[in-house]
Design a binder for these strands. Structure first.
Lengths: 357, 357
DNA sequence: TGTATACATGATAGCGCAACCATTGTGCTT
DNA sequence: AAGCACAATGGTTGCGCTATCATGTATACA
């Protein structure tokens, strides 16, 4: 048997025998040996270069480059309990809303030297719980998650985690830690007010997937109509399946069919549905906005360019991501944050599709 | 001074004093103590439960649950040199093309117990190099990256990495390891052939961002037109800025202006540009497809629903992500793969916007 | 009855790195 | 000339986990 205190040769047996050669991973110690310094100095060159004299620094850096040394983050994280990882949980990768928020998060996190570990919860609190477990096992230094409908168990983890957490997308009554979002209910309410203001009277609602935020928009819609005595539950058409342009068209057709076409305006909970409704209306030769108003939500780029242009609710998605990330970063670097709760607001972009006046 | 061989109390001084209590992280050893077994047995319960008797397993699991134990992946990875992480590098988060590929990757990786560490290279090989360094420092077990224009240094890393690597999106002459994609050049060529077949004669080209894949499509366009003696470089309008519907409209206007409107067909390198061109054409009262054909690329959902429906090139993005992930998984689990190079193909969806016949 | 064979569990030794503290050397003050 | 502060470097230890090997125990077979 080979003596086990020999750190160079060590375990040549079996496994290594098959495929070694240049195989052996380069470690801090290899770099230290190559450059004639101690391991800790190499570590400093990488993490706190200002603490090392220039001559040594250059010397070590040369060794790093020539050996192609890449630090092992797992060892580093274990030793320092700093992972430089931020966990992010979103309900869907295929929804442009979240990918734009993500862009904001990546921008800020990247600039601050943090990696992002992203998980997709598929709109399921149970899956979210599992995913957040996964995130936590990576000892993230912060967490950005979506909405407030976590499971009990999940909330427990999160409270124990003792790291900054941002719940984003919607405004929460009782956030776990920090919160960035906007008032979906009020936005829905305002949309309907706008439609009423334009003289539309029988306002339908089209919704898909029906996640908590979409539900809130629907409540706003309902409230606004009830206030003027014009709520009719038959004007609501929803489906649990994901949103898409195709689904928007289908729901629109079914709304028109079930109401015998008396509806003169439609509030779609997102722009995909709205575009679907609009394209379908065009095919049905319904004139928008003369005979039918269509309003979307999110204000994706197409809304401004389609003919007629589509009224929608603009929300700063990228900015929300930036804000969420920024709050985490500030907490991690002991900088003050103005508030634990941030309302990003929204703005109704009034365009041709709802302008009858 | 406190004796240092006491692992329970150990360092009460300073730091801990401020905020401990429930603070102390739960480790494998805590679970082991709580359930009266050794640490390694707890490890087995988590990683190879079939190796532990049922009674012990239940007993340990109970302790895990009641303590809310979450394993430390860094320690695990360090000890086992298995990270269960796959690195993914894409050029842009805001491009639907990549987010759909991502969806496929996440689906497969999630199902196989792998986490995905995602980085955004912003279409820059230099940034890509930096990002891939970051990925490698996490000791990923596999890597999925975009295209083939890595820097020399980056290729060096990758070759040294000794992990399965898939380069995706385009077909490469000399891939680093594995490759999944389709022939962009041929797709561009086929699009032009289709337009010619429909009787269009002066075919323009609109491109944005001009990444390598877009360039290949343009080469295909050029080749097809040269073959019939109808190539005119003045029919090409491009911009380095990112694609968008707005940019599509602008480029279309400028194409029409610079050619005095003689162009009777436009090949747009993606559907955003094509939609922009289409909406702009509508505003200019140009009849599509009678007086102008418009063809896009990628076949996003809107293409099929817009009026007139938009001809586009359909590529299995989700499927490409699935394929790439699957190849990695297969290699990691020593299953055979049919081939290191996979051509996903594409299909021209001929729709109203190019159908004059 | 003894020995081979599996199976279940435990003890020990690192994985690669950074925290912590110790040591050395340099220049400065008085 | 002695003392001190501080900057630059190194030695040791342990982060939390798993690979490896060792040990114990039950079952099988001759």
């Amino acid at each position: 048997m080979v003596a086990k205190n020999n750190s160079q040769v060590q375990t040549l047996p079996m496994k290594t025998a098959k495929k070694r050669l240049t195989d052996k991973k380069i470690t801090l110690v290899d770099v230290a040996n190559a450059s004639g310094v101690s391991a800790i100095t190499v570590s400093r060159v990488i993490n706190q270069p200002e603490k090392v004299s220039e001559s040594l620094r250059i010397q070590v850096q040369k060794a790093i480059d020539s050996l192609g040394y890449i630090p092992n983050q797992h060892a580093s994280s274990l030793a320092s309990s700093k992972s430089r990882v931020i966990g992010v949980a979103i309900p869907s990768l295929s929804n442009i809303v979240f990918t734009e928020v993500l862009r904001g998060i990546y921008e800020v996190m990247g600039a601050n030297g943090y990696k992002v570990l992203l998980v997709d919860t598929h709109y399921s609190p149970l899956e979210e719980e599992k995913m957040i477990r996964t995130l936590l096992s990576q000892s993230p230094e912060g967490l950005i998650i979506t909405g407030g409908d976590q499971t009990k168990a999940c909330q427990n983890f999160l409270n124990k985690a003792r790291i900054p957490i941002v719940q984003m997308m919607e405004l929460l009554a009782d956030p776990i830690d920090m919160n960035v979002g906007f008032a979906h209910g009020r936005a829905g309410y305002d949309v309907v007010k706008h439609l009423i203001g334009q003289g539309y009277e029988r306002i339908g609602f089209i919704g898909a997937r029906m996640d908590p935020r979409v539900q809130q928009r629907m409540q706003g819609y309902k409230l606004a109509l009830e206030q003027v005595g014009k709520f009719d539950k038959n004007f609501i058409v929803t489906t649990p399946e994901p949103s898409s342009i195709g689904v928007g068209g289908e729901l629109f057709k079914s709304l028109m069919a079930s109401t015998n076409g008396v509806v003169d305006a439609v509030f779609c909970v997102n722009d995909d549905l709205a575009l679907g409704a609009l394209f379908e209306a065009q095919r049905m030769n319904i004139r928008v906005p003369q005979n039918l108003a269509i309003c979307g939500f999110n204000d994706i780029e197409a809304a401004a360019y389609v003919n007629p242009s589509l009224t929608s609710v603009s929300v700063g998605r990228y900015e929300m991501g930036v804000k969420a990330a920024d709050m985490i970063i500030r907490v991690l670097s002991d900088k003050p944050i103005e508030s634990k709760k941030v309302d990003m607001g929204y703005e109704i972009r009034k365009r041709a599709s709802t302008s009858r006046l």
